[in-house]
């Protein structure tokens, strides 16, 4: 049984490469459409047919179980034929270039390609070479638009709104595409955004992004409604960004004590995967204030909404 669709939202651009370039009404349109899919996904009969006959290719140059699975499920629930290509597959290991892979896939006439790549700008480069629609599932340190959308949906469902909320994003901002997309989206919707990190993990020029900047967790979490933690990759120790995970956790890791600096009803988020004991401790990650599991559920709904909104403007739609 198909839930009657109330939203007629259409995404009027061929690609979704980032939050940059989306208007606040487009963002809200996607969130509202995603709400419908949350309800649908909780039914037994989840299958829709809006993408029936369409081909979706997941092209993941960087390993990711969660995002890839999320897109695969989203595509299949909308009735699409989904194909997964990931970095383990042979031609990528043979050193075929990004452009050649794009041209090859394009020749197979897919409708939508979802791409994740370790280099900033790579998804845009690929999008210029194909005729179909491209969704950015994360490019280097640049953008991860569907993550920011699912984070916004999660926040809105739990707090009722986004504007005038104080959101503290904590961790490796320098290397984080999740941080960048979230900063752009939350600012567009009127939230008050704060970033908390050691100076070595802040990009030069971060003040110009319209955020408050602090190197102190107590100050950073004060009056925060949402505390968003970012993963610290272990390679950062090698690059002389931070001296050790122990020191990092002591000053910047989220535990019950630091969480108490925020509002009593503050909620905790994390894009995953978590490094327990490095940026967040288990008690908080699994605790009552954690929205981490809900984020994953919202992820499928948001990706269905993006695919649905895009499908409405595909050729021969």
């Amino acid at each position: 049984m198909n839930i009657a669709q109330k939203s007629t939202f259409v995404l009027n651009q061929r690609h979704l490469l980032g939050i940059e370039g989306l208007s606040s009404s487009e963002i809200l349109g996607l969130l509202d459409l995603a709400e419908e899919f949350v309800a649908l996904n909780r039914q037994i009969e989840k299958k829709q047919s809006s993408l029936r006959g369409r081909t979706l290719i997941n092209l993941f140059f960087e390993v990711s179980t969660r995002t890839q699975a999320s897109f695969e499920l989203a595509g299949k629930r909308l009735g699409a034929d989904v194909m997964n290509m990931s970095v383990g597959s042979s031609s990528m290991r043979k050193g075929e270039t990004l452009i050649d892979t794009a041209i090859t896939l394009n020749a197979m006439r897919p409708d939508i390609i979802v791409v994740r790549h370790h280099a900033s700008g790579a998804v845009e480069l690929l999008a210029r070479k194909v005729d179909c629609s491209v969704i950015n599932a994360g490019d280097g340190s640049h953008e991860h638009p569907t993550q920011a959308l699912l984070d916004a949906l999660t926040i809105r469902r739990n707090k009722g709104r986004i504007e005038r909320l104080t959101v503290a994003i904590c961790g490796d901002i320098l290397h984080s595409r999740v941080a960048r997309s979230n900063i752009i989206l939350l600012n567009a919707l009127g939230a008050r955004v704060r970033v908390v990190a050691p100076s070595t993990l802040l990009p030069v020029g971060i003040e110009r992004f319209g955020v408050e900047v602090t190197r102190d967790m107590r100050e950073g979490l004060r009056d925060a409604d949402i505390v968003m933690m970012l993963r610290l990759q272990r390679e950062r120790m090698n690059g002389s960004f931070v001296p050790s995970t122990q020191e990092y956790f002591h000053y910047f890791g989220l535990d019950q004590k630091k969480l108490a600096y925020a509002k009593p009803d503050a909620l905790v988020m994390h894009p995953g995967p978590m490094n327990r004991g490095v940026e967040i401790d288990t008690a908080v990650a699994d605790g009552a204030q954690s929205l981490i599991r809900e984020q994953v559920e919202m992820g499928v709904a948001v990706r269905m909404a993006v695919l649905e909104a895009m499908s409405r403007t595909l050729p021969n739609a």
């Binding site: 940059e20 900033s120 700008g121 490019d139 280097g140 340190s141 640049h142 953008e143 595409r177 960048r180 990009p203 030069v204 020029g205 971060i206 110009r208 992004f209």
Partner: peptide, 15 residues
């Protein structure tokens, strides 16, 4: 070049 523009593009900068 290191700075706001590199930060927006998600590229490492050279000061």
């Amino acid at each position: 070049n290191e700075g706001e523009f590199a930060a927006r593009l998600g590229l490492m900068g050279v000061p």
